[in-house]
Design a protein around this nucleic acid. Sequence first.
DNA 1: TTGCATACATACAAGAATGTATGTATATTA
DNA 2: TAATATACATACATTCTTGTATGTATGCAA
Lengths: 224, 224
Amino acid sequence: MGLLQLNSQPSTLSSTKPMARKTKEDAEITRQRIIDAAREVFSTHGVSKTSLEKIAKHANVTRGAVYWHFENKAELSFAMREQVILPLFDRMDETLLVNNHNLDPLQRIENFLLATINVLNHDPATRQTYEIFMTKCEYVDEFSLVLEEILDNCSDIVKKLEQTYEEARQQNLVHLNHSPADLAMDTHLFFSGLLHMWVKDSDGTRFRDRAKSMIQTHLSLRRK
Amino acid sequence: MGLLQLNSQPSTLSSTKPMARKTKEDAEITRQRIIDAAREVFSTHGVSKTSLEKIAKHANVTRGAVYWHFENKAELSFAMREQVILPLFDRMDETLLVNNHNLDPLQRIENFLLATINVLNHDPATRQTYEIFMTKCEYVDEFSLVLEEILDNCSDIVKKLEQTYEEARQQNLVHLNHSPADLAMDTHLFFSGLLHMWVKDSDGTRFRDRAKSMIQTHLSLRRK
DNA sequence: TTGCATACATACAAGAATGTATGTATATTA
DNA sequence: TAATATACATACATTCTTGTATGTATGCAA
């Protein structure tokens, strides 16, 4: 009964429901669909008010599939977060530290900030994930582990900014009475605030449209 | 049966449970106790995972009392928020706009930021409320109304900062190539980021201890 | 081709949590 | 002082949600 799988190629996951499937490729597709579904439902109803049942339905599977791939809602959320956080840090290293295009250090910082905003503007998955983790989840119980991670990540960002500002100072691009550490922390706080405002302004009429110019302004304030 | 109320003075709300009470003063005390209880439970378990039953028990009342004073959990949360937000704005007007102590505009901005951090350090209710609304609630459904309010408040803060920076410019305290609007927005984003980091660093070892010096640094970056 | 592991779907049990309806004793007011 | 409104406590019905247990068809390996 149901559709027969004749070989190991990923099946089409068609609308008629075959009762069980199994190639590793199919399983991976299912897993990703669950993550995608979770992101979408989370971003409209928040994490707490979203049951695994709703996620499952939105992904055209049952809770059985969700529990097969993830321990619980928290672990599912963490997997979702990693998918956008890791690429962000790759971009950071590339944009900020590697001098590909003969840009001066201050330009690299500006580019890093602009690039991040750009991703948020153009990649819905990243944007939704940011919204979820900044305004639609609660950092208690298991989620408080994420807070620690965030703090670690921030320290990392500040370090790399500091390195870059140090370069800028050596090239005499910034005023000497400002230490790279201070500049780095100030820029980080600026950007942190900007991201929070950007996310909160879901209409896009108060901050999102001005984000880029604010970044340029921030860096022009540093330049000698 | 139960304790008798002999007059209209607020009763002592003793540990033995009289079944019903009623002076307006008592009711107001009960209401405040519910708010206090909610704040405490919210700040450890988050809003979503806190039932009205838990709040009621923590306040030594039943859900009946909670529903008498508040429509639901959201309205209770909003009442809680107002108790700390309104004083904050009063402080802002006083510290930022009124020149009580012959301080120059940049000093007034610095004082406003420092004063806010000071309140967070010393007033547990304010601190807990900030923590709740920044990391322990989800801005969906009724709560998304708060997001609008926050955006309005931010615009207000930026306006007042701009006014103050305008004064600073007239007194030739800042570089002329920076517009007061830009400076105001940059300072607001800085402080917004600082507050978020401050709240997330619940241990107090990464940001809280350095907050004040970061504020001073931020303003020294502006001064001519 | 048999046997086991995989990838789910289905079914079950149990506990919250909410909103509301109702009971009730006391304050307040007329 | 009687009547009414207040300030709750209690009880109830219902709806979600979770976790787990179980069923089952298929892929895959020996």
